[in-house]
Design a protein around this nucleic acid. Structure first.
Lengths: 362, 362
DNA sequence: CTGAAAGCGCTTACAG
DNA sequence: CTGAAAGCGCTTACAG
């Protein structure tokens, strides 16, 4: 107690973040009422003020170095020009270009972006969202959504505009900008088939996330298309999109299905886990097993062997997500809309014709 | 104009972010004055209120789902429990563990963190900082500092508590948590010397940033220590910490100094640029040239060849930076302090004994 | 220990 | 076109 009081005291003497000039100062200098000064400075209300007055006010504002107080404005208006962005793991370089694209659009519209590492715990995510709402964010972009996401629910209930990016929900309750995950898997599978592979396995991602789910479905559909019935397919699932989880699941595949000559992973990190597993088992890529990733994340072209993977326009995805949010923020009464980007395949050295001596045996 | 008014109108009918319950509501429910309710709910002032009243207020607050309004509180107190963190490039995975460490400490102290990609343009950085100050951040952690940084200047002038992380200034105007860059280079050089290298070049980083500058100095000192005079050293400098800039500078070294058998890079990204240059020139690592990186960033163990590099405790660095900031925020009157972490060398496959047929000439 | 009042810095109906 | 007033939701000296 005593200690706290002491701090408070020290605060008072030391704290001097000199944010001096207020609207009142500007108004006094320009000899107008504070309300007139406010109108003159705000582009949206500037029209209500006589031109010469506007000029005078702006001049004094400039001279005094007036910066406004977004906090006070937000308290009054309920708006903040702030957009919150939630990512599941800021350490994942995958999200950087998405964030870049989001920023580009939002900044151009005058919005300022707060990105938060939301982690994967649901309660923490909800708390975080509440904190952001408390800060009056005008809207939220979620890169964290599961196929049935409680945060989405929460925001919908509280009527906070949201947009999903990269991951969508099972039921389209919110606009989303995503990659065509099914198409991505078709590209991957077709590529291996074309190289001559027939024993193709899938290393899937978490099934409660759209990317994991849809890529699995896409794998099944593509394989079925080539005459491989769904119930005969080899699939293992990683519990998370990490190298470690990928490594573990990859071992299962390689041990239980040594006949597989190709593995299509739901994500690059998972693919790197396959590399690790192959190495431990003394098997080679692409000599023994071809590997396809997904995302084309940074550095994946420099690993050994350079990874064949599905390239997604992540930056563009961010751009589209931001555009969708701007529409929401304007409450434009348009139909709910999703943006689905078409990915492409990047062929590198982790895929090759199967080794027939081994691969073709039934 | 008309259009804008229309939006405003739509806003009014649609906007219903139902942030209902205020302190007033709680006070009414508990039959106390709003000021009493405020005191009862705030741990720091709770002692001023009778225990039973505290209980009653808290109960009603809980029942009503009262969440408080940080914005209003900040406007009144000037404090926000918000800390801004500026990184030069959120896409660089290097910063993730730093951010993780910062968050861990700050969250535990009740602070909420806003991380912003500050880019490299000075004006934009200053604007960003002003925006954050306008939002009443209590302090700032900068991972962006140059050796003489205008943002640091700006914050110092406005008396905003700051701490530097990863990069320090030339004159210690603000507390910093950094790695011992000079030691890191000594580790790298000693390692190559021990392997038998004598023709060792340095691929340096930007010299206006402490890491680039100090690693260069560290290289010079370490080489001098082994009997190589400073003015005879081979050094090229990359204009930025990117693979591309590294690639360009690496070519200069390799073309102008084909006799070099080892290159010590100021950073892993730069080292990857060397890989690229070597490949283009048909030379091999480590067969022809050994390469040492700096940072041990993610995935650098999976490139070909796995990179020998200097490992920095990035997470710990973030932790220490956050601790320094907490000290600043409390205005504890202690001496200015820097935390300098000792790095370690991680030997992988990019370094080997030099090829004597070529390397030892003149 | 509690209440009444002022005020943080804005914006915006309401008058004129 | 401009001013005066109210109020966003809090915190905190000031009285009692």
């Amino acid at each position: 107690m005593q200690k706290e009081l002491q701090y408070v005291h020290m605060d008072k003497q030391a704290r001097q973040i000199s944010r001096a000039v207020t609207l009142k100062d500007v108004a006094a200098a320009a000899h107008v009422h504070v309300s007139t000064a406010s109108r003159a400075l705000n582009p949206a209300t500037r029209g209500m003020v006589a031109d010469d007055v506007v000029e005078r006010v702006r001049m004094h504002a400039r001279e005094l170095g007036y910066r406004g107080d977004p906090l006070a404005a937000s308290l009054r208006t309920g708006r903040s020009m702030l957009v919150g962005v939630l990512v599941p793991d800021i350490a994942n370089p995958l999200f950087s270009p998405i964030l870049g694209g989001i920023n580009e659009i939002l900044n151009a519209q005058g919005y300022y972006t707060i990105v938060s590492d939301a982690g994967t715990e649901q309660d923490a995510q909800l708390d975080l969202v509440d904190a952001l709402i408390g800060r009056r964010v005008d809207g939220l972009i979620l890169a964290t959504a599961s196929r049935n996401d409680p945060v989405v629910n929460h925001c919908l209930e509280r009527n906070v505009p949201i947009v999903l990016v990269n991951r969508s929900e099972a039921t389209q309750r919110a606009p989303a900008a995503v990659s065509d995950d099914v198409l991505g898997m078709k590209l991957s599978v077709d590529h291996l088939i074309e190289l001559g592979h027939r024993r193709i396995a899938h290393l899937g991602g978490p099934q409660h996330i759209s990317t994991g789910y849809l890529r699995r479905v896409g794998f099944e559909m593509a394989m079925e298309n080539h005459g491989f019935p769904r119930d005969g397919l080899t699939m293992e699932f990683a519990s998370a999109y990490t190298r470690e989880a990928g490594h573990k699941a990859a071992k299962m595949i390689l041990l239980k299905h040594p006949e597989a000559t190709g593995i299509v992973a739901a994500n690059d990190l998972l693919a790197l886990g396959i590399y690790q597993a192959l190495q431990e088992l003394g098997r080679h890529c692409p000599g023994d097993v071809s590997v396809v990733g997904h995302n084309d994340m940074p550095f994946v072209d420099m690993v050994q062997p350079p990874l064949t993977t599905v390239r997604i326009g992540h930056r563009e995805m961010g751009v589209e997500a931001a555009r969708l949010l701007v529409r929401e923020l304007r409450r434009e009464t348009a139909a709910r809309m999703n943006v689905v980007l078409a990915p492409t395949l990047v062929e590198r050295a982790s895929t090759a014709r199967p080794n027939h001596g081994i691969g073709m045996r039934s």
